[in-house]
């Protein structure tokens, strides 16, 4: 899928795009000839993804920063606007996951998870939405999680934040869809990203063991690749996504718990 999605020249901002799903989405959007602003907490990670985009013949710019801060978001979006134009596609992907039982989880870590995973999405969305409404075209794709639907042991804050994103997506879509702004979400199941290292540590097993365990919990016997989630995200950034406004597309391999 390259060039057939109508994203040629569109300005996209992908948060948390220094690795994993976010990096895969940034690269796929660039392959569709979108101009991709790459956000990551650490500047070197944002630059690394931009380097990959440029090496593939695409256009990208690094906009590192912590999305939990409204001021930082304001500044980084302002950088995008002054450099390449208003953000037309926002992919809210930045997230953290600290695996710990609810009573063992430091309240500060609970708050930080909500700040990044839920409030960060609010900051980014609120910052770019006026421009989208004015242009009467915009796409907001949020990477939620199946854990936002079913919850997960050791991930109370993460599940709460992702559940909030799913509900926020449905609510915001109703507010703005008639103005050409389509808001959707994806709820991935287990994806083969560096996050699995954290899961393995929490479970006290090896990375291969956690991959095997998660695979066995799906109906189709495997975990997802970041590229699969990226493919769905790029489609949801296209004009076709109108039919799915407000929905969260769960890509879980049929994992039920």
């Amino acid at each position: 899928m390259t060039g057939g999605t109508g994203l040629d020249g569109r300005v996209a901002l992908v948060t948390g795009a220094g690795q994993g799903i976010g990096a895969a989405i940034a690269l796929r959007l660039a392959a569709e000839r979108a101009i991709v602003a790459v956000n990551a907490l650490h500047p070197e990670k944002a630059q690394r993804t931009v380097d990959q985009i440029v090496a593939g013949g695409g256009r990208g710019l690094p906009v590192p920063g912590d999305v939990a801060s409204a001021d930082v978001v304001d500044a980084l979006v302002g950088n995008v606007e002054s450099s390449v134009g208003p953000v037309e596609i926002l992919v809210n992907n930045a997230a953290i996951l600290i695996m710990a039982g609810f009573l063992e989880l430091d309240p500060a870590d609970f708050d930080r998870t909500i700040d990044v995973n839920l409030t960060g999405v609010m900051h980014c969305t609120r910052r770019v939405l006026p421009g989208m409404l004015e242009a009467r075209w915009g796409r907001i794709v949020t990477i939620a999680s199946q854990w936002g639907r079913i919850g997960a042991k050791g991930a109370s804050a993460y599940s709460a934040a992702k559940g909030g994103l799913i509900a926020m997506t449905a609510a915001l879509a109703r507010e703005v869809e008639r103005n050409g702004v389509i808001v959707t979400a994806i709820g991935p199941g287990t994806v083969d990203t560096p996050q699995l290292n954290e899961d393995a540590a929490f479970m006290g097993c090896s990375l291969d063991e956690v991959r095997e365990r998660y695979s066995q919990e799906t109906l189709i016997g495997r975990i997802a690749s970041p590229g699969e989630i990226a493919g769905l995200a790029v489609w949801l950034a296209s004009d076709q996504a109108v039919a799915l406004a407000g929905q969260t597309v769960l890509a879980t391999g049929g994992r039920s718990e």
């Binding site: 899928m1 879509a173 869809e177 991935p188 199941g189 109906l219 189709i220 997802a224 590229g227 699969e228 989630i229 990226a230 493919g231 769905l232 489609w235 076709q240 996504a241 109108v242 039919a243 799915l244 406004a245 407000g246 929905q247 597309v249 769960l250 890509a251 879980t252 391999g253 049929g254 039920s256």
Partner: peptide, 27 residues
């Protein structure tokens, strides 16, 4: 007609991890 885009999504090569779901076509 709203089913068209949703069918298109589910027939993407990258939709192979979407299973056991109910999607609603149209708003």
């Amino acid at each position: 007609a709203a089913s068209g885009p949703v069918l298109e999504l589910l027939l993407l090569a990258d939709a192979g991890y979407v299973t056991a779901e109910v999607l609603r076509a149209g708003t």
